[in-house]
Design a protein around this nucleic acid. Structure first.
Lengths: 229, 229
DNA sequence: TCAAAAGTGTTCCGAATACACCCATGA
DNA sequence: TCATGGGTGTATTCGGAACACTTTTGA
């Protein structure tokens, strides 16, 4: 028997987005945070997020909030998990549907307000010195584990790059996310067997080295291989 | 900037539970459903579920609802995903945090009311003739995929069995969930390397065949190996 | 003594890993 | 012509898959 919908006193729902930013030049992996300007956790870094509005799905909230707060429109945004510990929010029973995105830092829109948007490296975030609002450190840890697992059997790495990209760049995305170097030949063998790469007849020019072949995605959304989830 | 918490007009939250029932004798895999006694979808089969109450986490709701509606207390209940399509519920913006459980049908409590609790086999459920309420068929499909993936790299099979169980029974749980037979020797090699099994000095007696060694779990909750998720 | 299921090792194959040299470009 | 990173193939190793016989019990 369902409880009466009109007497709903249940949880309120927010969305929080873990935006992983990689930098192909500095080889850093960071997470985008916003310094809170309201209580609770005033002045503390938190994941960008917001309440789900009427007639909005959580995915729409995630896309909207990411756009409004950071200007980012990411090709890859995916639901991670719903966090619902009773004491996660001092204001009461507020649950959070966590999403994650992977974004090339050099593609970030200009004019991000550095006073409010912070970028902390993964190691800073997991340092015991770093304090984050709510259970956001736990959310980031969970999303990071998922990201590392999923990049190896999906095309999400390619979704985060510009339309035309090189295999060395794609490999660097892997290395940044996994936190370790990978063998060039083995990487190319594996990534090409997945079949989401389309070779173009273009090459990257203008650097004093051999020009790299440009590739593009066959698919505009996430595709997974072998494993589920 | 967060929206004002006091003007919250966002979604209401329910929990729905996909209870997978396996039967070691008939080798069937079924899902427990309840015939709805209220609108919408009056008289149609649906997953057991209910609204999240005040001061309740979604996990607590899942455990409570499963107990209240079916009498089941499962060792293994896990969050799967939050379903939030805008039109999934005709009453409005009602999201569902989906959970799944795996239960030995022979361990079900007596006195389940057959007039309201239904048990449909996986093949019946995915038949195009079968109608389920809301988006519950989609939820079951998603959970089933997750279950099949996760049983292979976790101890969830053992959690669903009684305290003392045999390797042939454990293997049968695998075969029912995966929908295919597996090789006995390879199965034993793999499952013992995980290290969650503890051999006891007891044997199952009373059948006219060689008695099987009884094992028990080292861990009382889910443990995963290798892969994340 | 028979039926029925429990228990046990080895070979084979394919996928993942390790590894080193030549190539194309702009400076 | 040199420095820089791009591009390519093979041998090895390891884990997963295939496979058949002996053992123990109650009837």
């Amino acid at each position: 028997m369902d409880d009466d919908i009109y007497n709903y006193g249940g949880p309120k729902l927010t969305v929080d987005i873990v935006t992983f930013l990689y930098n192909l030049k500095t080889l850093e992996l960071k997470v985008l945070l916003i310094k809170r300007d309201t209580k609770p956790f005033l002045g503390i870094n938190a994941l960008p997020g917001g309440f789900i509005r009427e007639d909005e799905s959580s995915f729409e909230t995630a896309s909207r909030v990411l756009q409004e707060k950071t200007g980012i429109t990411s090709m890859y945004i995916e639901q991670v998990k719903t966090f619902d510990s009773i004491n996660r929010d001092p204001r009461g029973q507020i649950f959070s549907v966590a999403y994650m995105a992977l974004v090339n830092e050099e593609e970030l829109p200009d004019g991000l307000d550095a006073r409010i948007t912070q970028r902390l490296s993964i190691s800073e975030i997991f340092s015991s010195k770093t304090k984050l609002a709510f259970d956001h450190k736990e959310i980031i840890q969970y999303a990071y584990n998922r990201l590392q697992a999923k990049i190896s059997y999906s095309n999400l790495s390619a979704l985060s790059l510009p339309q035309y990209f090189t295999l060395p760049d794609l490999q660097t995305v892997f290395e940044i996310v996994l936190g370790e170097t990978v063998d060039k030949r083995n990487f190319r063998k594996k990534i090409t067997t997945f079949g989401f790469l389309k070779e173009t007849d273009k090459k990257r020019k203008g650097e004093s080295k051999r020009p790299a072949q440009l590739y593009t995605n066959k698919y505009k959304k996430i595709v997974t291989y072998d494993r589920l989830i």
